[in-house]
């Protein structure tokens, strides 16, 4: 696979391939780029940030408390889309989600009234 390294502003174009048992990264100019390339190749993960519905209308923002496998991002977004939480939700509140083998906490990050 090909990707761009995001470890620094250089933005090296990385080529990552599996040769036998070994994962080979080329195009990088430093060690951090090699580690990034390997991680992106073997288990890319992303923190999901999206919105969650509030009872009676409106939205609050939320995120997964840890990065989830990249290929599960759309599952997590779809699941959060089915939820509705109370209007008294506060920043830092947590909901646990079990999704076909993926266990993650969803953390409220902002509400329409936070700071009022």
């Amino acid at each position: 696979m090909n990707t761009i390294c995001i470890m620094c502003p250089m933005g090296c174009g990385l080529k990552i391939e599996k040769v036998g048992e070994e994962i080979r990264v080329s195009g990088n100019t430093c060690k951090r780029g090699e580690a990034y390339g390997k991680a992106e190749f073997t288990h890319p993960v992303r923190t999901v940030t999206t919105l969650i519905k509030l009872e009676g209308g409106g939205v609050a923002s939320c995120k997964t408390d840890a990065p989830v496998p990249k290929e599960r991002v759309s599952d997590v977004v779809a699941y959060i889309g089915t939820l509705t939480i109370g209007r008294d939700a506060k920043i830092g509140d947590r909901l646990h989600a079990s999704l076909d083998g993926l266990e993650t906490d969803i953390v409220i990050t902002g509400t329409p009234t936070s700071g009022c």
Partner: peptide, 19 residues
């Protein structure tokens, strides 16, 4: 700015804008 990426330098942890 509900996405991640804030605070890495100042708080040494990654958080969202509202946080």
């Amino acid at each position: 700015c509900i996405h991640q990426g804030f605070g890495l330098h100042y708080f040494k942890e990654e958080m969202t804008g509202p946080e």
